[in-house]
Design a protein around this nucleic acid. Structure first.
Lengths: 189, 189
DNA sequence: AACATTAACTAACAAGTGTTAGTTTTTTTG
DNA sequence: CAAAAAAACTAACACTTGTTAGTTAATGTT
């Protein structure tokens, strides 16, 4: 475990602040105060406020993308893949809750990287939908509206970061199990 | 159908802007431009930017509260009540999508009314949880973690406003049906 | 026509915004 | 210890923020 750089520390604290007030409402002076330094000193480590947001969001977005890649190259059926998607979201929500908050709430404030982010999200959803459609075709998944199912699952999974903190010390496996039970057993045939 | 006042028009347009950029990122000059007037002119109709946010959020929050009241005084079983909750969220999401966005994303920017809002939300969730717990006790609902079930349902229902616009002209009844199927049939015994 | 109301305007202010320039202090390294 | 690098500082900039004051134009009502 290498020690985090000063820059990483700033980005981490920024994510925490963004989570509670949103990107636009957090000023560089807020961030500096939270770091115990002056606003101008931040610029020894980071390029701009915008660059911080990019760091936070793109990092997580690519984590989801590579996670999905791993899932779809595996030799697994549709139900197993949905379970793996749940595990992917739980893992990221548990150890990057603050970053996830920014991704969910502040992606629209991305400037240069906005297009790239939207592309990643689009691809992710397309892969997700494909898994569902294949599952329905193969009669592994009940015949429901694929879009409604995907958005229902995604809504829950994307909101995980909001209430995981409330549940105290959540066992990663137990949570994945509870979610699989609720999200999947209802559509399982 | 009475004509909307100028103030209502301002609040409606503000909600639309808040939805796309968030409360903090929308300036009074943005709002004025969208209304085709100057920023100072807004103050002939509204008290402050904060008052607009309060109008938007408290209105919807009370709508949910009274909807929940109607549900829990009815002589219905737990599954029926969950279906009614789904219908409540669908109805509000369909005809107040923009206001819902503010409620979901900008509630933390409430000042005076923050405490009141949190109280309403707390009460709502307590009623929701009670319905689930009663359902499990009465063996109408499968034995799952009540909190996980509630947050799963609430996550989906609270995100409705995000993707209802994408589905084009959604039939209110069809959507409620699809959601009931996906959210409830899995936990039905 | 006279009046009252509604709704717009211009001009400005005080505070807050992200960021830069230049300098000094602290820490690390040879 | 001396040199280099990292990290902090003060001061200021150009611009934007919500909001107020005072005034003018448009609309509706006797």
């Amino acid at each position: 475990m290498k020690k985090e750089t000063r820059k990483q520390e700033i980005v981490r604290i920024a994510a925490k602040l963004f989570k509670s007030k949103g990107y636009s409402a957090v000023t560089m002076r807020d961030l500096a105060t939270a770091m115990g330094i002056k606003a101008a000193s931040l610029y020894n480590h980071i390029d701009s406020k915008q660059a911080i947001l990019q760091d936070i969001i793109i990092d997580i977005a690519e984590d989801f993308t590579s996670g999905m890649q791993t899932i779809i190259v595996g030799n697994t059926n549709s139900i197993e893949r949905l379970e793996q998607i749940i595990q992917l979201h739980v893992r990221i929500a548990v150890d990057s809750a603050d970053n996830l908050a920014a991704l969910n709430s502040d992606w629209m404030h991305l400037e240069n990287k906005l297009e790239y982010y939207l592309k990643l999200r689009q691809d992710y959803e397309n892969n997700f939908r494909k898994i569902i459609e294949t599952g329905i075709l193969n009669r592994e998944i009940a015949s429901v509206d694929p879009d409604v199912l995907m958005f229902s699952m995604l809504s829950t999974l994307r909101s995980l970061y909001l209430w995981i903190p409330k549940k105290g010390d959540v066992k990663l496996d137990e949570l994945s199990y509870s979610l699989s039970q609720i999200l999947i057993s209802g559509i399982n045939i």
